[in-house]
Design a protein around this nucleic acid. Structure first.
Lengths: 127, 127
DNA sequence: TGCGCATTTAAGCAAGTGCTAAAATAAGTT
DNA sequence: AACTTATTTTAGCACTTGCTTAAATGCGCA
């Protein structure tokens, strides 16, 4: 009980234990994958800002977001597409303007993260 | 009340409102930045697996993780370094082996995410 | 129908990421 | 000191990311 697939050859390698870990990992794999891609989306400063804004404003159009973030409409649009493709946002068109809003599926994960931002216990500069 | 910095020229541009959004954003900026980098770290499938494993096993050495994930020790080590640099993990050496474990600072954010993985309400294949 | 505004898409590019392979540290054993 | 094991570091490379610029699409209005 000590031989292993990879190149580490320590004596204490507990194959049973390792296989147990692997099984648990396999079990959560699909959930873990989808969580990873959600976090990857939110793990970009610009996109996290967009999510934060939408958590506060219910809905915003590409234009507004570009104004707030002082970024190109094109750049913002490309971020919005990623977020939409990831199921984090949904879009609805009103005339020629497209409004984006947070969509339900991933909200349980995202909400607490975004709430945590406003609940900063220190550093109230405008108080 | 309708002119804007960027290239979108819609009539309804509410400068006051936009500036309000910007102010709120500035206010949370530091917290948002650090959250973004934490999520970027966790938003990688391999690293999220590592975090998941460490949430279950308290501590593991590079070797063990490499075995479980069936990856090169070197590749794992590089991920661990990023996690450590980001303050998500801390390391302590026992002989020549280095044990990694989740570190407190970011736990409040990470724990719920990792817990969510095991609490999958559907798909119990081994039941 | 033709023009204007909101948005998307496409191409290109600089920078970043994640792996491999090989060499460098570091620590225990003999 | 020489040898082994655990880990880190380095360089290199394929691949991805996020922006810019320019062209396309979509839709409303005169």
């Amino acid at each position: 009980m000590s031989k292993k697939a990879t190149d580490c050859i320590r004596v204490y390698a507990d194959t049973t234990h390792i296989e147990q870990c692997q099984r648990r990992l396999v079990q959560v794999e699909p959930a873990l994958q989808s969580l990873a891609s959600l976090l990857a989306l939110a793990g970009n400063e610009v996109r996290l800002k967009i999510l934060f804004l939408l958590a506060q404003e219910q809905q915003l159009c590409v234009c507004d977001i570009a104004d707030v973030l002082q970024m190109t409409v094109s750049a913002v649009s490309q971020h919005l597409r990623k977020l939409k493709d990831g199921g984090v946002l949904h879009a609805h068109k009103v005339g020629q303007t497209v409004f984006y809003a947070l969509s339900q599926p991933h909200l349980p994960v995202l909400q607490p993260l975004l709430m945590g931002l406003t609940a900063t216990p220190s550093l109230q500069s405008t108080l």
